[in-house]
């Protein structure tokens, strides 16, 4: 007799087929976008025509020349903002997460809930007050005005508290008995959560890469803008320009997060499932 397999081990062809249909519907626009970077304006406005008449690289060249938007400049800004924000968030929230997970102290519950409040009241919901505050601080039109408020992440606190809860207490106690200061204890535990740090860094990078509202309020000079802003302003401009340039820019905009995710996909999923309550 055949041993009964668990659902994760038996393959169902109907499920696979249905998923392929859903998947194709989900990514058709992306395939279309990739192909449309080679089309002229007449071809582009036929959404059902997928392949371009000719694989014409001139629109990429036009984009890289930087006359319509300073593309590489904007791209570099986006990378810088997202990287700094990811780094800052991981540093601050992992430290706080360690404290919440491995210490008992007065006002612990209150402080924890205070940081959770940031999840339900994110900076986008408070964008106008944030803008006028940054205005008072003279941080308008500086990338720090985007990066610094962005590192206050309630999600990070929740995530790293769960991560540091997984670490055996004996290990923490042993490091304390060895006479390390609390910060050194945290520092020695860090390598144990490498995956978790990278995963959350990736999430924060993606969130920051996508952010539209806050940079729109803060950054006004074109040379300081990030990708969503540049794409939106090109799209909204009354200029007559080949739409293929916009599609080429969009294609490159998607690449970094898509590649990062594809590379880290497995690590990301397992570190996520470790922190989820079960």
């Amino acid at each position: 007799m055949k041993k009964a397999l668990l659902p994760s081990e038996r393959a169902s062809w109907t499920a696979t087929l249905l998923l392929i249909v859903a998947g194709v519907l989900f990514i058709y626009p992306f395939v279309w976008m990739f192909c449309s970077a080679f089309k002229d304006n007449k071809e582009i406005f036929k959404p059902l025509q997928l392949l371009p008449g000719a694989w014409n690289l001139e629109y990429y060249k036009l984009l890289f020349k930087g006359e319509l938007i300073p593309f590489w400049r904007v791209f570099a800004n986006s990378v810088l903002v997202a990287f700094l924000q990811a780094l800052g968030t991981v540093a601050l929230t992992s430290l706080a997460g360690y404290v919440f997970a491995q210490h008992r102290f007065r006002f612990q519950g209150l402080l924890f809930v205070a940081s959770l409040v940031v999840i339900v009241l994110p900076q986008q919901a408070l964008a106008i007050p944030l803008f006028s505050w940054l205005n008072e601080l003279k941080m308008i039109d500086s990338i720090w005005g985007v990066v610094l408020p962005g590192v206050v992440s309630g999600l990070g606190i929740l995530y790293f508290t769960q991560v540091f809860r997984q670490i055996p207490r004996e290990l923490v106690e042993a490091s304390r008995l060895a006479g390390l200061s609390e910060f050194r204890v945290y520092w020695t535990l860090l390598p144990l959560c490498g995956s978790a740090l990278l995963s959350f860094g990736l999430i924060q990078f993606i969130l920051s890469w996508h952010e539209h509202l806050i940079p729109l309020l803060v950054l006004s000079t074109q040379d300081k803008q990030t990708l969503p802003l540049a794409l939106a302003s090109l799209f909204g401009s009354s200029l007559r320009f080949p739409f293929a340039v916009l599609m080429a820019a969009s294609t490159i905009t998607i690449l970094p997060t898509a590649i990062l995710f594809a590379v880290m996909h497995r690590r990301f999923k397992s570190s996520l499932s470790e922190v989820l309550p079960h």
């Binding site: 989900f26 990514i27 279309w32 976008m33 539209h212 969503p228 794409l231 916009l246 905009t253 995710f261």
Partner: peptide, 19 residues
Amino acid sequence: LTFMLLLPGLTPPAVLALL
């Protein structure tokens, strides 16, 4: 398949709106 479903989530909403 997972990646195909996830790609829109990895895309900035501004680009999604454009598409």
